[in-house]
């Protein structure tokens, strides 16, 4: 960005970002706490959890099963009430779910009585109520094409394979143009081959859209391949952020260049050491 543009547009994001650091933060989790009351007393899942995610950053979250990753994600989505602390998107505190935070669920969660196109349209209609029907259809079709489903617009969700269903899930999430994309182990239920294909699809569409993304995963390689930063969570109860690791590979990435990069095994070892600790 040249100095000339900055002086011409003093209110632009770039200038603010240059001077005021906080406005670069898309998602801010501050002293977050989650408590589940049980008959034997309160069970504290998360405590003193602090995390800041920048605009256009892709963050993967890794941690042992049951440590509270999904709880954290559903709290960001607004589907799970916050017990303490706060979550803010661009400085606005989260008060329940909304289309500014798109979610890709672990199971594709498509409406089985609708076609692929109708499933994507459900969200598009909601977010672009003033667009014409043809425009909305075009948006939905565009994203379905982007995830490789140009031939399956009118197929019922039940007629699609798991992998294809999750592709529709990805299209649905991107098509509503959210501020933040939340991915809850979206490829956990797929076989490794399909999983690789979907990672490629996801990263390809993400490279175009650059939507701030938070993704939970169990898979160390997936975490490194997709992320700008891997966040490691400690095991529960009272889980918090244990460590973060910046992944400095250039984008766009391909699987081959990532695997052949000299730093790859260093990153991998770092993550595995943390998880096995």
């Amino acid at each position: 960005m040249s100095t000339q543009t900055i002086t011409q547009k003093p209110q632009s994001d770039e200038l603010e970002n240059g001077i005021l650091f906080p406005s670069k933060v898309m998602l801010d989790l501050h002293d977050l706490k989650k408590v589940y009351p049980t008959p034997k007393g309160d069970y504290v899942v998360l405590e003193h959890l602090n995390l800041q995610i920048m605009k256009e950053e892709f963050v993967t979250i890794i941690g042992h099963s049951g440590c509270g990753k999904t709880t954290m994600l559903s709290m960001i989505a607004g589907l799970n009430p916050i017990s303490g602390g706060n979550i803010a998107v661009l400085g606005n505190p989260v008060k329940g779910p909304g289309p500014d935070r798109g979610v890709i669920f672990q199971s594709p969660s498509l409406m089985p009585w609708m076609t692929a196109l109708q499933n994507v349209m459900l969200g598009v209609n909601q977010v672009f109520p003033h667009a014409t029907k043809a425009q909305r259809k075009d948006i939905a079709k565009y994203y379905l094409q982007k995830v490789g489903l140009e031939g399956a617009f009118n197929k019922k969700a039940t007629e699609l394979s798991q992998g294809m269903q999750q592709r529709v899930g990805i299209a649905r999430a991107f098509a509503i143009k959210p501020q933040v994309l939340l991915l809850d182990e979206p490829f956990g239920m797929l076989d490794s081959l399909t999983r690789g294909e979907l990672q490629d699809t996801l990263i390809e569409i993400w490279n175009k859209e650059k939507i701030t993304a938070v993704m939970i995963t169990h898979d160390v390689d997936e975490a490194i391949f997709l992320a700008d930063r891997v966040v490691m969570m400690t095991s529960g109860p009272r889980a918090k952020i244990g460590d973060t690791l910046s992944i400095d590979f250039e984008r766009p990435r391909t699987r081959k260049t990532v695997l052949e990069h000299p730093d790859y095994y260093k990153y991998r070892k770092h993550l595995i050491d943390f998880l096995e600790h």
Partner: peptide, 29 residues
């Protein structure tokens, strides 16, 4: 109704009418 469908409806912020006619009724048909 499957909780996943309700969550989708919540994330998309469907109105009450749409939630009933687009999600709840078809799924309980």
């Amino acid at each position: 109704v499957d909780k996943d469908y309700i969550n989708v409806a919540k994330v998309l912020k469907l109105g009450a009418f749409q939630k009933v006619f687009k999600v709840i009724l078809p799924s309980s048909l």
